[in-house]
Amino acid sequence: MYGMVNKAIEDLVTIKFGEDKWKEIKRRSGVNIDVFISNDAYDDSITYGLVGAASEVLGLTPPQILFAFGEFWVLHTARLGYGDLLSAAGRDLPEFLDYLPSFHIRVALIFPHLKPPRFETSDRGENHLTMHYFSHRPGLSEFVKGLFSGIGKMYETPLKVTQTKSKDAGDDHDEYLLQWGAAAAA
């Protein structure tokens, strides 16, 4: 997993809950890393361990934690280092979503060993599209929902996220119906 994901967990906990809670989460998870390097690869178990410990320490369910991390990652952590790049990914929400698959393919080219997820779009309409999410990592669908939610907030566009397929439920990949504008309000 990207170091920046772990960094997002650290930032979220320290900003929203304080430094002591972060120390407690690290102690409980057994993670003994002082600084996460954004573009370094870390074992997935570290991220899962941090999420589990955060759930215990903060009294939130893992899905709640993952959703909050996803949203926070877009609105805070990624913007600190990749804000201009994110902004350049689309002038508006639909444009961003259209470009998301190519964006991740380019990420995969830059970091071939990181195994980033793959996105595909289909059923593009004026106010909706279907986003397909392929990842070898289990249990991250709430994190992805949090990412979409954060992107909607970044473009100040109402976005409705409905999961239509779930790998955890036995499907071959996760699938989300993304609706914006008037469709999101409906």
Binding site: D84, S87, A88, G90, R91, Y99
Partner: peptide, 12 residues
């Protein structure tokens, strides 16, 4: 990347 915004461009 921020020069793109100055030019009114996006990656697509």
């Amino acid at each position: 990347p921020n020069e793109l915004a100055a030019l009114g461009l996006v990656m697509s």
